[in-house]
Design a protein around this nucleic acid. Structure first.
Length: 677
DNA sequence: ACCAAATGTCATCAT
DNA sequence: GGATGATGACATTTG
């Protein structure tokens, strides 16, 4: 990075970079490079650090009072850059020494952003030069540079603090700067140790704590990313536009190594072809990717100069790896790759562009995930669209499996970190530039939901034949989601794919999903529907229609999607209907029980009333007998109660009436009542 | 293998 | 007129 500064300081840098920024939409905050050194850094120190051979005022566009242009000329250890070595060589050595060999874009972005946002000049030594932070920058740089990939940790306030921190944290294996070709075995270990041997998430969190008060804007952007990533696509669409605006407004301060290479590749004299030719060791990791590109006349520069950053370039990977037809795979992929012209404008990535068949759901989902944690300047919406579009024509993928897998929180947590590597593969052998040169197939096997024996087989083949490939070349980026694993947790073969802590669960889950795919899911899988059944069913009608119109789908796919939606909704409706029917039945049963209970109560009341009536009748009968036993007629004889009856009048008088008259009178009253009715 | 319950699907109608 | 919900009838799956 300091070499970038050198190149920049020596003339063509600033103007060219500015043009690139404006044209390519790279989101680099120029203020980063114009930051003055801390006031504690004396001018003499600057001069000392900068060395007498450099004249910042003459060479650098920055203020002569000690800007980054001067200090950036220093090696992190304070030594001057080797004037005999070519600029590219030193640049690549620097990049290599950082242990972040420009491939793991998100990681670089992450810690660069953190460091820059924190004003942690030492922490940004990899980008801005280490010597500009009151002496600490030198120390920080000297510690970080050999450690490789230690960007966030490099920012220390003093050498003492640096030593203390170094004591606390295990010393990471030193990244060896490759200086000769054929050192793949040595290099194979370095990046993995640098990236996988440390807890990057904890590092990021520590860094977040340090810089939390100074990167609110970045956090806000990141939060926006997270919100979008957490939401379904139709919800994320709402925020994509605003996110694009943020990027276009240049508020993002990230500057990744991929951007560096875009810059270099845009300079004819610094094209990757030239670089790779001049410096095979650096690019000649596992598969000597870019170096081999030059030897085999692959126009890598052309591809890079199309502003295809590594984020986007990664989208090529599945296409090249998973296609069954090797001929079409390589030719189509290369053609499509060269036709890529991604920018921050999402419209250019909408259907209609010739970018189909690049991405698997693994990539798609992983992008959503990584954007939450690492990608500060990535327009996830673009990637989503690209991914979804590409899925339409992808042959070997399992959308439901992936989507379901990613719905599991564990799986999400497992994939918060991802590593990336760029590989160049053909059907027989592979070359690749990888940040994880140890084993490219790890990337596949470690990918969430990305268990693809076929692809793993491919990559193993590539690794074996790295010295003897020929023919057409295609690029792909291999996602490495395993760098957070310990090396012993990694299984080298796809057959024994494992996931630390979750391997059994995931494996079982994958098996279950294979076995338990619903018919619609199987149909969707068969037709490569780039959406999950759940999405299709639950999506609002507006989003659903817009989705159908946005993506190129065959009539069969559209028909299937509509059927899936109809069946899915009807399924829910049937469930609701049955539930409702069951509720009605239960309510009716309750009502029956209540009515039965009420009936019993009424019966009991009736029995009680009848009993009371009988008692009253009996009392009346006894009373009548008692009265008649005391009554005498005119001749002094007792009156027969069978012949006479007592009748109470309205005025309270009691009359003794013969029963014949009583019964006849009752009949007459009854007849009168009938007449009235 | 059989059965009953649960669930999915289709057709149809209503909103 | 299309989308959606409700529901009966039938098919399929599950335990």
């Amino acid at each position: 990075m300091k070499l970038l500064k050198q190149w920049w300081s020596t003339g063509g840098g600033l103007l060219h970079l500015t043009m690139l920024l404006s044209l390519a939409g790279l989101r680099v905050d120029l203020d980063l490079y114009l930051l003055p050194p801390p006031p504690t850094l004396l001018q003499d120190e600057l001069l000392l650090l900068g060395g007498p051979t450099r004249s910042a005022s003459a060479l650098s566009p920055f203020p002569a009072s000690g800007g980054w242009g001067r200090t950036s000329l220093l090696h992190p250890k304070g030594r001057e850059l080797d004037p005999a070595a070519s600029l590219e060589d030193q640049l690549l050595r620097e990049v290599r020494a950082l242990g972040v060999p420009f491939i793991p874009h998100t990681r670089v972005d992450a810690w660069l952003v953190h460091s820059v946002a924190a004003g942690d000049t030492a922490g940004t030594h990899g980008l801005l030069g280490a010597a500009a932070s009151s002496g600490a920058g030198v120390d920080g740089g000297s510690q970080a540079a050999p450690g490789g990939g230690g960007g966030p940790r490099a920012g220390r306030s003093s050498p003492l603090a640096a030593e203390e921190e170094e004591e606390k944290a295990p010393v990471e294996p030193t990244a060896q700067v490759p200086d000769a070709g054929g050192r793949a075995s040595q290099e194979n270990q370095v990046p993995r140790e640098n990236y996988e041997g440390m807890d990057h998430r904890s590092e990021e969190e520590e860094n977040d704590e340090r810089v939390s008060g100074q990167k609110e804007k970045l956090q806000q952007n990141n939060e926006d990313e997270n919100k979008v990533a957490d939401k379904p696509e139709w919800e994320a669409e709402k925020t994509a536009e605003s996110r694009n605006e943020i990027h276009l407004n240049g508020t993002d301060t990230s500057f990744s190594l991929e951007d560096l290479f875009q810059l270099l590749s845009s300079q004819p004299e610094y094209s990757l072809e030239n670089i790779s030719e001049d410096f095979p060791p650096l690019l000649g990791s596992t598969s000597n990717g870019i170096n081999s590109l030059a030897h085999y006349n692959v126009n890598f520069t052309q591809a890079i100069s199309h502003d295809v950053n590594l984020h986007e370039a990664m989208l090529l990977y599945p296409n090249t790896t998973f296609r069954r037809d090797p001929v079409t795979r390589t030719s189509q992929a290369q053609e499509q790759f060269l036709q890529l012209n991604f920018h921050s404008n999402p419209e250019q990535t909408l259907p209609g562009t010739n970018i189909t068949g690049f991405v698997t759901p693994v990539d798609n989902q992983m992008w959503n995930l990584t954007s939450q944690d690492l990608l500060y300047d990535l327009d996830a919406n673009i990637l989503d669209e690209i991914d979804l579009l590409s899925l339409v024509t992808e042959e070997n993928f399992d959308p439901m499996e992936i989507s379901q897998l990613f719905e599991e929180p564990d799986s999400l947590n497992s994939s918060h970190h991802c590593n990336f590597s760029l590989s160049v593969c053909d059907e027989e052998g592979a070359i690749g530039y990888s940040s994880d040169p140890v084993s490219p197939h790890y990337d596949l096997e470690g990918a969430v939901g990305g268990y693809y024996p076929e692809s793993s087989k491919l990559c193993r083949t590539h690794q074996r034949n790295e010295s003897g490939f020929h023919g057409d070349l295609t690029f792909h980026i291999v996602h490495d989601h395993t760098y957070h694993m310990k090396p012993d947790e990694l299984e080298p073969t796809s057959e024994s794919f494992s996931w630390p802590g979750k391997s059994q669960k995931v494996s079982r889950y994958l098996n279950d999903t294979h076995r338990n795919l619903s018919r619609d899911e199987q149909r969707a899988k068969a037709l490569h529907i780039p959406f999950s059944v759940d999405e299709i069913v639950r999506m609002p009608v507006d989003s659903f229609n817009s989705m159908l119109s946005r993506y190129y789908l065959t009539d069969l796919q559209v028909s299937l999607i509509r059927d899936i939606r109809r069946r899915g909704k009807n399924k829910v409706a049937a469930q609701n209907c049955r539930k409702r029917k069951l509720d009605i039945i239960l309510n009716l049963e309750d009502e029956v029980c209540n009515l039965q209970a009420k009936k019993e109560t009424l019966k009991r009341e009736q029995a009680q009333f009848n009993k009371a009536i009988n008692i009253m009748k009996q009392k009346l009968h006894d009373l009548c007998h008692d009265v008649f036993s005391r009554l005498r007629d005119g001749e002094g004889r007792p009156m027969d109660p069978n012949l006479y009856a007592l009748q109470c009048s309205h005025d309270g008088t009691v009359l003794i009436v013969p029963k014949e008259l009583v019964t006849s009178g009752h009949k007459k009253e009854g007849q009168k009542g009938k007449r009235k009715k």
